[in-house]
Design a protein around this nucleic acid. Structure first.
Lengths: 341, 341
DNA sequence: ATCGTTTCATGAATCGTTTCATAGAACGTT
DNA sequence: AACGTTCTATGAAACGATTCATGAAACGAT
């Protein structure tokens, strides 16, 4: 019923080794023999059994990726970039979604290890240094999305979050805001802490500026909305006049809350800036200023680094690729002096 | 170097079959034997080789999914639902992105077939009936996202697009619009044609209503924006007063174009309604009316159907699950009489 | 005719697991 | 003590591919 390489061999009247050679090294086989075998393969509808191939060859052709939140367009962009790059190298990408659960993250790592993927690309929630080193014993190359790791052990891809945070708040200060609020958390999410650090540095440069930190459990539109309502409950004087959110989703939530209330003008009373520059930032009620990160490039580069390590396991030295973020000014902070002007 | 089940057996001093039993049928093994073996597994850092497991067992524990556009939040929702449901059954989901290329779609099908996935969940671009039937020879269950298929051959999941299209345009007519435009295409995308059919039916019910069809090559924000600009180029009298787009992304693009022009009031001059109810529809400049589809449920149900077929291959009869769409009214069509009032 | 090369097909061995028929041990019953 | 049951451990066989040492065939040169 199920056609194996042996069936093809018998059908064509050659040895099974020859069929394998046609599949894997056609140039070592006589041209018309190749043709005959391929014909046989077609006739019998043979499809290679990848499990057997992998068992014997010892390696798979897949790369595993773990994202923390697939409904965040930024991660979706990253995954797309990763997938495109994987395809270039003739590999497949398997994507797992951890939903920011450290447990699910570990489960996926186990799964990927059983599958003997060539590499794992992930933004770790917990500290996984030891676990990831174990992966190496199965010749699996881990690549991280993260800035500060024990640099020597892994390749990594990251945005300069500290600088991004600085840029964002510097911009708020430049347009005259002084009561700054940072909305974000938890610290486990990559780079959040750095963005806050950068924000703090910018605030410290201006004498009368203050920074309030509003901690959140996750970074979603819903969270943004509820933080927004919480702000609306305050007396006007006690509200921030400039808010920097750890990602665009939260900012979009804030915008919704403020606009629906009809009681806060953006950016007049509160200026807003997000992070990532997802596609929907432009389409918001009030188009959102933000710090742009090249999401797809993160993915492309992450997978490239895996491919580098896999293709030359010996002469490989780990690299840390850092992308520079970029300020994008839209209406949620505009109608004022250009920051550079 | 690499630890196999045999190494574990030797290390613990039992037979290799016993180790396998501990892994696969622990209840048939004496309790303290189980403990000793597990201890050995831990000590040696053994990780099961899934390729070997699969080769011998004959089946994989993965399900393949092919999405047409992973950056569309609707598909992202679907993928998330599919993944969650796969995990419930202890399976993994592999997601491939066809970017609406029939060729890439076929490549992924080949790949999935080589991997002997348990099922494939996809919204076919081309007619794949024959190819999908071939998959059955490898006991791979195909499940489609699509309404009209040769019903007997496959399970499928779909939204009632005809009804959805009807609801959308009926709503536009109810608020007094008569010059309706439908924006969407190509027909290859699931359900587009049906949405148009439904739209047409609604228009036909009203004597003085007209329907203009604006065909597009894809369904993205960018396309929406350029259609919007094209509308703006027309004399005011020749513009539609109600527009129905084949998905929310296009509608968001239209909104951007209209709002940026400062020359068209939504919904006063042109009322807009989209399709899918992606999360960002609420957060748009003008919150978008739309036809809601339960994206995650599509994914959950699709994978469930695969599991049904896999778990009882004999007594299986194919099912077609149809989800009813729902009208969601927001500001892009509101400020008028409630459709039901 | 002989020899050396080159080209190319062969098939046994192997990868690491699961399965299953077999048999030994332990226990209760007569 | 003999027998039947139940429980549990054993290890050879099989899954389907790839690899590689081997040798046959074809060819050209001497």
């Amino acid at each position: 019923m199920v056609v194996s390489i042996r069936d093809v061999a018998e059908h064509v009247g050659v040895s099974l080794g020859t069929v394998s050679n046609v599949l894997n090294r056609p140039n070592t086989v006589n041209a018309d023999m190749v043709a005959r075998v391929l014909e046989g393969i077609r006739e019998l509808g043979y499809v290679r059994n990848d499990a057997a191939r992998q068992l014997r060859a010892g390696n798979s052709r897949t790369i595993g990726m773990i994202v923390q939140d697939s409904s965040n367009p930024f991660f979706a962009d990253m995954a797309r970039g990763a997938e495109d790059q994987a395809e270039v190298g003739g590999r497949m990408l398997i994507v797992g979604n951890s939903h920011q659960s450290a447990e699910r993250e570990l489960r996926y790592i186990d799964l990927f290890e059983e599958q003997r993927v060539q590499g794992v690309f992930l933004a770790p929630i917990d500290d996984l240094t030891e676990r990831l080193k174990q992966l190496r014993q199965h010749r699996i190359a881990p690549v991280l999305v993260q800035r500060r790791v024990s640099l020597d052990d892994f390749c990594s891809v990251a945005g300069d979050d500290e600088h991004g945070g600085y840029l964002a708040v510097k911009h708020l200060l430049d347009i005259g805001r002084r009561r700054i609020a940072f909305v974000g958390g938890p610290v486990s999410i990559i780079g959040i802490e750095d963005r806050l650090t950068g924000a703090r540095r910018a605030v410290d440069e201006v004498a009368d500026a203050t920074l309030e930190v509003i901690d959140t459990a996750e970074l979603t539109v819903g969270v943004g909305r509820s933080v927004g309502e919480q702000i609306l409950d305050r007396d006007r004087g006690r509200r921030p006049d400039g808010m920097f959110t750890a990602n665009d989703l939260v900012a979009l939530g804030l915008i919704q809350a403020f606009v629906m209330s009809h009681s806060v003008q953006i950016p007049d009373e509160i200026a807003l800036i997000g992070y990532d520059d997802i596609a929907f930032a432009t389409a918001a009620v009030v188009p959102l200023s933000t710090i742009r990160q090249p999401g797809a490039m993160f993915g492309v580069m992450g997978v490239s680094l895996i491919q580098e390590e896999v293709d030359s396991p010996d002469g490989h030295t780990h690299r840390q690729v850092l992308f520079q973020p970029e300020l994008v000014v839209r209406e949620s902070t505009a109608g004022f002096a250009d920051p550079e002007a």
